[in-house]
């Protein structure tokens, strides 16, 4: 069986919305020949235990990702800017849990 090759199927990213009102959340990826089969594979792989109400399938190569090497430039400058967190406001008791 030396001529067996890995199927030439592209990679897809899977997003599930678990409940109405929540955002779709990335859950993993899969291989499939096209978007129709990718959606079915996502249903079969990632929603077997009642995880979702809605699925999004995105070709992995459609995602533009930040370069890990740019971590310093991209994310570190915010570490020292704690004043951006909304923790400096007094919340009236009547507001309750926010």
């Amino acid at each position: 069986m030396s001529d067996v090759k890995t199927p030439n199927t592209p990679l897809w990213e899977v997003f599930i919305r678990s409940r109405n009102g929540l955002a779709h959340k990335h859950v993993g990826s899969l291989h499939a020949a096209d978007s129709t089969l990718a959606l079915q594979a996502a249903r079969d792989l990632y929603t077997r235990r009642g995880e979702g109400l809605s699925l999004w399938i995105v070709p992995s190569n459609a995602i533009t990702a930040s370069d890990p090497a740019d971590k310093g430039m991209m994310f570190e400058p915010t570490v020292s800017k704690a004043y951006r967190h909304p923790t400096f406001y007094d919340v009236p008791d009547e507001v309750g849990h926010m």
Binding site: P7, T9, L30, H31, A32, Q40, A41, D44, L45, R48
Partner: peptide, 12 residues
């Protein structure tokens, strides 16, 4: 199964 994804589908 021919691919992992399809094996799960057949099992389901």
């Amino acid at each position: 199964g021919p691919i992992l994804e399809e094996e799960m589908a057949l099992g389901n």
